[in-house]
């Protein structure tokens, strides 16, 4: 069992966008969409010579508490326990967009042609991991800001970095998503993401429709059980006249029983 993760040293990122481009090429990411990104701080020019911008490479964090998976009713979006990667099972997906909205990082988009979510899977479906080569973004990075590996392997570079250096994670305000993307020492910008927001269609289904359906079916089952018990243990004596033998059609001709 593996647990793939990424450790990023954002202080060495030079914002060359090589990771974004190589990802797009490797995964045929459609025009106008990106599976990964480089965020940046707004420079404070009042500092004069000391003015600097901090660049922060990112992508799907393959969270241990994936809110995208929580928002998916069918399990089309799932976290593979063998690798720790969050995948999309496209034929099982109806393209409802729940997961895209429930991701606080904006790491997903709805593919304009396939109309199902698209996201970083550490180049798993591109076949790179099976061939033993790191994800395209990691391979391309000229300053080696992005480091990829297996956290369950104590000898991997990500494990070594986590052991030897202090790291931080970027998490949502209201839910700790426990991301598997670590930043060495510190990172900026840190004022994102905001709260995880589950789409209304999902919240209504989870908190209103589901209990309502359970109560309705439960009450109905209870009623049926009551009628069944009544018939089994305390039948009306007249019920016998339903059998053809003991019937008197003449005497009840004008009355319903």
């Amino acid at each position: 069992m593996k647990k793939y993760a990424m450790v990023v040293d954002s202080s060495v990122c030079i914002d060359c966008k090589g990771c974004m481009v190589s990802c797009k090429v490797q995964n045929n990411v459609p025009r106008g969409f990106w599976r990964n990104w480089i965020k940046q701080t707004t420079p404070d020019f009042s500092l004069g010579k000391l003015t600097r911008t901090h660049f922060q490479p990112g992508g799907c964090m393959q969270c241990d508490v994936p809110t995208c998976v929580q928002a998916c009713p069918s399990g089309a979006t799932f976290k593979d326990q063998e690798t720790g990667i969050v995948h999309v099972n496209e034929p099982l997906c109806i393209g409802c967009g729940n997961c895209v909205r429930a991701c606080p990082y904006g790491a997903r988009f709805r593919h304009p042609e396939k109309r199902v979510p698209d996201k970083c899977d550490f180049c798993f479906s591109a076949g790179r991991l099976a061939r033993g080569i790191p994800p395209a973004c990691v391979d391309t990075c000229p300053t080696k800001a992005r480091v990829f590996g297996d956290l369950n392997d104590p000898d991997s570079e990500v494990s070594r970095l986590l052991r030897e250096k202090p790291t931080v994670r970027v998490t949502s305000q209201n839910i700790d998503t426990q991301p598997n993307l670590y930043y060495v020492t510190a990172t900026e910008p840190a004022d994102w993401p905001g709260d995880v927001e589950f789409p209304q269609a999902y919240s209504v289904m989870a908190s209103l429709v589901n209990p309502l359906v359970k109560v309705a079916v439960g009450l109905s089952a209870l009623g049926v059980a009551g009628m069944w018990a009544k018939q089994a243990f305390a039948p009306d004596p007249e019920d016998d006249d339903q059998g053809p033998e003991a019937r008197h059609p003449e005497s009840t001709a004008s009355k319903q029983d």
């Binding site: 009713p73 393209g95 409802c96 967009g97 709805r110 269609a201 999902y202 209504v204």
Partner: peptide, 17 residues
């Protein structure tokens, strides 16, 4: 139809509910 031809995901989300 949602993954086949609907560009807006909302109808599918509410349809399921």
């Amino acid at each position: 139809l949602s993954p086949l031809m609907l560009d807006n995901p909302d109808p599918a989300a509410w349809s399921r509910t």
